[in-house]
């Protein structure tokens, strides 16, 4: 959440009144299952009325279960993991060809790093020296079946990205100052792409949800909602 707030309300050049403005910065949500988070940010920014959030995932609604190009502000349809960084490379290459100054941000999941295409895209971003491409990994350590380090270990993750010749910055994903510094540093980096590894805790602030893979793809039941509100207050 802090990450998207930093991007949409501090870092990115964008215009909710003109979602297809050619010079806008692009945000690609590659981990499509985080769609509700993106939608709430887009609604807050003014891309569509907040009432739409009430009909999320319902038939006939604007807000589909996963990001969809019909939704103002959504840059890429997502759902199948591993594709977003490739699409980001394409957007960044187009900016280079057209000599446009926009920047492309791609948010990936950590479990998503297990997809081979991510590393194909990593190689190509280095090859084309895409300093206008910034990728972010939400490093919460959890995927659907359990902990990433048990299902298919990713560490040393930062070293992997450095070996692919990316500028790698590690931050606390809840610390606005660290996030701001990281995005600003990425902008100053020339001739190579930047990877920001944001360390987060899934379900942060709710004792029974933190570090629990149960809530990766499942919403908490109704009787749990009151407990959640109590803990988050």
């Amino acid at each position: 959440m802090e990450l998207l707030v930093t991007l949409y309300f501090y870092k990115m050049k964008h215009d909710p009144k003109n979602p297809t403005w050619p010079d806008r910065d692009r945000f690609i949500l590659s981990k499509g299952h985080a769609a509700p988070l993106l939608y709430s940010i887009l609604a807050q920014a003014g891309y569509f009325p907040a009432e739409e959030l009430q009909s999320l995932r319902k038939m006939g609604a604007l807000l589909q279960g996963h990001p969809d190009l019909r939704i103002p502000g959504v840059e890429m349809p997502a759902g199948s993991e591993g594709i977003g960084l490739s699409v980001g490379v394409g957007e960044a290459l187009a900016a280079k060809v057209d000599k446009r100054g926009y920047r492309t941000y791609v948010l990936m999941g950590d479990g998503e790093q297990q997809e081979g295409e991510v590393w194909e895209a990593a190689m190509s971003a280095s090859k084309f020296k895409l300093d206008n491409l910034i990728a972010i990994i939400d490093r919460n350590g959890i995927q659907q079946d359990g902990l990433t380090e048990q299902i298919m270990p990713l560490e040393p993750l930062a070293a992997k990205w450095r070996a692919f010749n990316w500028n790698v910055i590690e931050v606390d994903g809840y610390d606005y100052l660290q996030l701001i510094d990281a995005f600003d540093a990425a902008e100053m980096t020339k001739h190579r792409p930047t990877m920001i590894i944001a360390h987060t805790v899934k379900g942060k602030g709710v004792s029974f949800m933190e570090w629990s893979p149960t809530y990766h793809g499942t919403a908490p039941s109704k009787d749990k909602i009151t407990d959640i509100y109590k803990e988050l207050k």
Binding site: A94, E120, S124
Partner: peptide
Amino acid sequence: FFNMGIAEQNLVGVAAGLALAGK
């Protein structure tokens, strides 16, 4: 012109990104 190497899924994904940017 972009040679993406032996990485076809990235080839297709990058082509999609270029198309999203109007190419």
